[in-house]
C-alpha cells in the first residue's frame, strides 16, 4: 500500500518522535536541576513526587495556566512568530537521525548532513526576530549578540561537518553510522570533538556561551518581553536543541545507535543512543555548572582567530587522509 508508506507510517513516527522529544525535554529540565544541585552541594527539586520526578509536570501546568500577555510596544506578528520559529527547527532536525539499524527517525534522506546545516541555519532567526520585535533595548542587544555569535560559530561547525563528510564519503547519516571506519579515522575525529562541542555550545546558546540571554547582564536578553507559554517555547527550543545536538554528536562521533549486539537486536539501538545522548547532556550541564562566561568580543575573537583556522586545517587533513589512505 503506497499511501500507507507515504503518509501513515511517517505520521506515526513523527507523533512518537514528538512525544519522546517533549517528554525528553521535560525530564531534561529535571535532570539538569538535579545535576546542578549536586554540583553545587544542594539537593535540587525533591518535593513534587519521589526525587522531584513530578516537578516537570508542575512546571508545565504552571506555564500553561499563565496569562498570555502581549506587550503594547511589540511588533505583534513577528513577536508571536518568533517562538514558533525557534522551536520548529529544533524538532525537525531529528527527521534524519538514525535511531536503530536501518531505521532513521522519520526518513533516510540522502542529504542528511545538508539537512542539518540548513535547519540549524534557521534556528538563529527565532532568537533574532524575538529580540528585534520586542522593541526593548535588552532584547535588541541580545539579538545583536545572538546573530553575530550564531553566524560566526556556524562557520567552523559547518567546516567540521564537511570534514567528517569528506572522510565518510556520504551525505546520509544512516550510511555514516553503518559504515565501518578504521581506527585512525576515529582518532582523527575525536581529536576535534572538544572543538566541535564548543561550537555546539555556542550554537545552542548554552552556558558559557549564553550571551544572548545573559541573565546577569541583559536580564533575559532576547526573551525579556516573553512570558507564559511563549517563554516556555523558547525554553523548550533551547532544551530540545540540546537533545538534538547531543544526538547529532553521538551519531557523528560515537557511532549513533551502535553498540554490542545492536545489529542482532534492533531494539537495543535506541537504548544505546539514549545512553550516549544522556552522557553528552551530562557534559552540557557539567560545563554550565563550572565555567564562567567570556565576554562577547572574546567569544568572537576565539571563533574567528582560533576555531576557524583549526577547522580548516582539519578539513585539509581529512582530505589528505581520504586521498592517500582510503
Amino acid at each position: 500500500m503506497d499511501w500507507l508508506n507515504l503518509l501513515v507510517y511517517p505520521a506515526v513516527r513523527v507523533l512518537v518522535l514528538f512525544f519522546v522529544l517533549l517528554t525528553g525535554f521535560a525530564y531534561l529540565t529535571w535532570y539538569e536541576r538535579k545535576l546542578l544541585a549536586r554540583f553545587q552541594v544542594r539537593y535540587g527539586p525533591n518535593r513534587a513526587g519521589r526525587f522531584g520526578l513530578l516537578q516537570p509536570l508542575a512546571d508545565a501546568i504552571k506555564a500553561l495556566f499563565k496569562e498570555e500577555i502581549v506587550p503594547d510596544h511589540v511588533d505583534r506578528p513577528v513577536y508571536l512568530l518568533a517562538p514558533a520559529l525557534a522551536i520548529v527547527p529544533a524538532l525537525i532536525i531529528w527527521a534524519v537521525i538514525p535511531v536503530a539499524k536501518d531505521f532513521p527517525a522519520v526518513a533516510d534522506v540522502p542529504i542528511g548532513i545538508l539537512w542539518i546545516l540548513a535547519v540549524a541555519g534557521i534556528e538563529g532567526y527565532g532568537v533574532i526576530l524575538a529580540g528585534w520585535s520586542s522593541n526593548n533595548n535588552y532584547s535588541l542587544l541580545g539579538a545583536l549578540r545572538s546573530s553575530a555569535q550564531m553566524i560566526s560559530y556556524e562557520l567552523p561547525l559547518g567546516i567540521f561537518l564537511v570534514s567528517i563528510l569528506v572522510l565518510a564519503g556520504t551525505f546520509s547519516l544512516v550510511e555514516l553510522v553503518e559504515m565501518s571506519r578504521p581506527w585512525w579515522e576515529w582518532l582523527w575525529l575525536w581529536l576535534v570533538f572538544p572543538l566541535f562541542f564548543i561550537c555546539i555550545l555556542a550554537e545552542t546558546n548554552r552556558s558559557p556561551f549564553d550571551l544572548p540571554e545573559t541573565e546577569n547582564e541583559l536580564v533575559a536578553g532576547f526573551q525579556t518581553e516573553y512570558g507564559g507559554m511563549k517563554f516556555a517555547l523558547f525554553f523548550m527550543a533551547e532544551y530540545i536543541n540540546m537533545i538534538t545536538t547531543s544526538a547529532i554528536m553521538a551519531t557523528l562521533f560515537f557511532g549513533g545507535w551502535k553498540g554490542p549486539f545492536a545489529d542482532q537486536y534492533v531494539w537495543l539501538g535506541p537504548v544505546y543512543l539514549f545512553i550516549k545522548v544522556v552522557a553528552l547532556l551530562f557534559l552540557f550541564i557539567w560545563v554550565r555548572a563550572s565555567v564562567s562566561r567570556p565576554r562577547w568580543d572574546q567569544l568572537m575573537r576565539f571563533s574567528w582567530q582560533f576555531l576557524l583556522p583549526v577547522s580548516l586545517m582539519h578539513l585539509m587533513g581529512s582530505a589528505v587522509f581520504t586521498v592517500f589512505l582510503k
Binding site: Q40, S207, S292
Partner: peptide
C-alpha cells in the same frame, strides 16, 4: 563576583559554605 562573571551559582555556593 564569579556569579557576575556568569559562573552560575557554583562558585558562590562553594564560597559561602
Amino acid at each position: 563576583l564569579l556569579n557576575d562573571l556568569g559562573a552560575l551559582q557554583t562558585p558562590a555556593l562553594y564560597a559561602i559554605e
